[in-house]
């Protein structure tokens, strides 16, 4: 080969390596931008919120404006906590799960068992659409269905119903996808032992896909944990700890909104957000762990 041709080749190689490096750096830089917000959010929440976190914060209800103002002028931390929000959130999320999990799992099984049927396709599409419905609209619906006719006023039940409608499509989809991942051979093994179909589903398919189902459920819960809009129209909020599902109830995101509207309570916004963020992250990491363990 001539030396000129050789030179062209090596030059070409050099520019190519250079371009390659530039592109790689760009990819890395853009990826860092993606994770930057979450790092900044967590940093900010910890920096501003950690000083309010104490046992009182979990065990007591919020102070009134006057107490908060006094504490602020004296340079102390704001007394009280968000116990009503924590219990309200737990109450409504648990109730929503009790509604959404059985319905979602059974629907998911139906979709998996009848992939091509008209009804199954309809359900699949509708549940996809449901996932895109704005949460405030779901709040309105729950207001129409529960608040007015059933509980005769704002209630935890109405809040749970709106949250469960939000969870439902996630659980349906994750159930169907998880079941699809089970090898057909496992199903055949059970059927070849003469096991009736419903028992194959209950005793073989569900246990085998259990961790996948759990992952979907945890993600669904973590999604509704921070929902505010539907709760404003349904659960409304409450200054006391309430376990009565037919009464107005507070929730952590509702409290954050209330604190936002009161200049004396601003510090509580950060600590409440920190707690909410910690709950969501824990659920997310748990679901990732469970999903990774089964792969």
């Amino acid at each position: 080969m001539s030396t000129i041709a050789n030179k062209i080749l090596t030059d070409n190689l050099k520019t190519r390596t250079l371009k390659n490096k530039a592109f790689k750096s760009l990819v890395v830089a853009l990826s860092v931008i993606t994770i930057l917000p979450i790092i900044l959010i967590i940093y900010k929440l910890i920096a501003k919120g950690i000083k309010q976190i104490s046992f009182d914060f979990i065990l007591k209800t919020p102070p009134d404006t006057f107490e908060a103002m006094t504490a602020l002028t004296n340079g102390e931390t704001i007394p009280g906590g968000i116990a009503n929000g924590i219990t309200g959130t737990l109450l409504m999320v648990i109730l929503a799960s009790v509604i959404a999990i059985p319905v979602g799992v059974v629907t998911g099984i139906y979709l998996y068992e009848n992939p091509g049927k008209f009804l199954a396709n309809l359900i699949r599409n509708v549940s996809d659409i449901l996932q895109g419905v704005p949460s405030i609209v779901l709040g309105l619906i729950a207001y129409m269905w529960i608040v007015k006719p059933v509980t005769n006023g704002f209630s935890a039940l109405a809040g749970s119903v709106s949250l469960s409608i939000m969870m439902l499509p996630m659980i349906v989809r994750s159930t169907e996808e998880t079941l699809k991942m089970i090898p057909q051979t496992i199903k055949e093994a059970a059927l070849a032992l003469g096991v009736p179909y419903y028992k194959v589903i209950i005793r073989v398919l569900i246990p085998t896909s259990f961790s996948g189902l759990l992952t979907g459920i945890l993600l669904g819960i973590s999604r509704v944990l921070g929902e505010t809009a539907p709760l404003m129209l349904t659960a409304l909020g409450s200054t006391i700890i309430n376990f009565n599902v037919s009464k107005p109830t507070s929730a952590i995101p509702l409290l954050i909104w209330e604190f936002y509207n009161d200049p004396n309570m601003v510090d509580l916004i950060w600590s409440s957000s920190l707690l909410l963020m910690a709950m969501v992250l824990t659920l997310n990491i748990m679901s990732k762990r469970i999903a990774a363990r089964t792969k």
């Binding site: 051979t185 496992i186 055949e188 093994a189 070849a192 032992l193 003469g194 073989v204 246990p207 085998t208």
Partner: peptide
Amino acid sequence: TIKLRRMAGMVFQHPNPFPT
């Protein structure tokens, strides 16, 4: 079928013990 499949056991191409 339960009686029949007890009398005629089947083994498949891919080993398929119940994973759980």
